[in-house]
Simulated scan of single mutants.
Amino acid sequence: MKISSDGIKFLNDVDVVPNNIYVHHTKIEERLPIHVHTKHQLSYVEGGVAFLNTPTNSYFLPARHFVWVPAGMQHNVELRSPVVMVRNLYFPSDLFPKNHKLRKMGIYPVTNLVMEMIMYTEQWKGGFNEKDIEVYEFLLALRNVLMAVSRVPLPVVLPTTKNESLLLVLRYIHENIEAPLKLNDLAKRFGMSSRSLSRLFRQHIDTSFLQYVKLTRVIKSMEMLLETNMSISEIAYACGYSNVAAFSNVFMQMAKRRPADFRKENIKISH
């Protein structure tokens, strides 16, 4: 993947000064390759649909949530629709206790206070440390708030793989999510036994065929809940459910809230 000189400079600048807290906001998020930082990263996407990709998983980023990427984790952020702004903050890893949950990857709701503090950083760009007293103290205060309010991460993760045979199956599932998807039918379509296909899922993404389909349908429904005016029932049918109750129950199981509540809590700022 070709990256602009600005993209390369930004990736390098984040880690140049180890004790800097680095601030980077952009209206156009360049599609960066999978990369890694020595600092923890907070990314908040205003509007639109985004995913955090790692070599093994894809994490859906709903509106009004931020993603926390721990230092040393390979990742990139993929935007699936136009966005208003991508806000990134990078914190030196030693600013967080070794046993704190923000030492691990997570997607967390953005409280009103966190939202206001992130927005306030819009006036800054680049790295800041103890010499920049006012800015640095504010960013440390934001760190303290994040540590206090980041309690329960969003539990929706879509595993991925580099296995070419399984990738074809996964792509078919994504492109036909509204259709009945059965293990036997897909195994036959891709020229293998049901047992072999089931084994591929277990070996390469450590989940079952049924669980993967459920996750894909819930994530697709999350996109529709945030990006369309479709009714809950229309979204249920578009994601392969024959009735709203079944859809709502699976959504509740995966996202720990009902579809209507998820839409209400995460309605885009621009609406």
Rank of each mutant, 00 (worst) to 15 (best):
V14A: 02
R87V: 11
L225I: 01
I205T: 05
V86S: 13
M254F: 07
A179E: 11
L200D: 13
F201N: 03
M117A: 12
S198G: 14
N12G: 13
K2M: 00
L146W: 04
R80K: 15
N176V: 05
L167I: 13
V14R: 01
R143M: 12
N57G: 05
L170P: 03
F66E: 00
E137I: 06
L11R: 01
S5Q: 15
T160A: 08
Q123N: 10
M85E: 14
N129V: 09
F66L: 10
A255K: 03
S208N: 05
K162I: 08
L113M: 14
H271Q: 08
N88F: 05
H40T: 10
L226Y: 05
I235K: 00
E137S: 14
Q211F: 05
N19P: 09
L95C: 06
V49G: 09
E175F: 02
V77N: 06
V152F: 08
V84L: 12
V250G: 00
V17C: 10
P70E: 15
L154D: 01
V67W: 03
Y136W: 07
V110G: 01
R263T: 03
K162S: 12
I173K: 04
V49Q: 08
R87Y: 13
P155R: 01
D6T: 08
H75K: 02
I8E: 15
T56C: 07
K101C: 06
V36N: 11
R80C: 07
A260W: 11
P259K: 02
S196E: 13
P33K: 11
T26I: 07
M147D: 07
L158M: 14
R151Y: 05
P259I: 01
F190N: 09
V145W: 04
M73T: 11
L215I: 13
Q41V: 05
V17M: 06
S233T: 04
G7L: 00
V49F: 07
S81R: 14
S270E: 15
P155S: 02
R195G: 15
F262E: 02
T56I: 11
L11N: 00
K264Q: 14
I118K: 10
P70T: 13
A236H: 00
L170E: 08
I235G: 00
V156Y: 03
R199K: 13
Q123D: 09
K264Y: 14
F10P: 02
K104I: 05
S4V: 03
G240M: 02
S198E: 09
D94K: 14
A187W: 07
R151M: 11
L140C: 11
V17S: 12
E122I: 04
M115K: 15
I133G: 02
L186A: 07
S198V: 06
Q74N: 15
S248C: 02
N129P: 00
G72F: 04
H35T: 02
E265N: 14
V84H: 15
T216I: 07
Y108Q: 07
A246P: 00
T38L: 12
T56D: 11
K104M: 11
I219L: 09
Y172Q: 06
L225M: 10
Q74D: 15
I133R: 08
R64E: 11
K104H: 08
P92Y: 03
E234Y: 01
E137A: 13
M1W: 08
N57A: 09
F128A: 04
K125Q: 14
L154V: 01
L210Y: 12
K214H: 12
P82H: 04
V14Q: 03
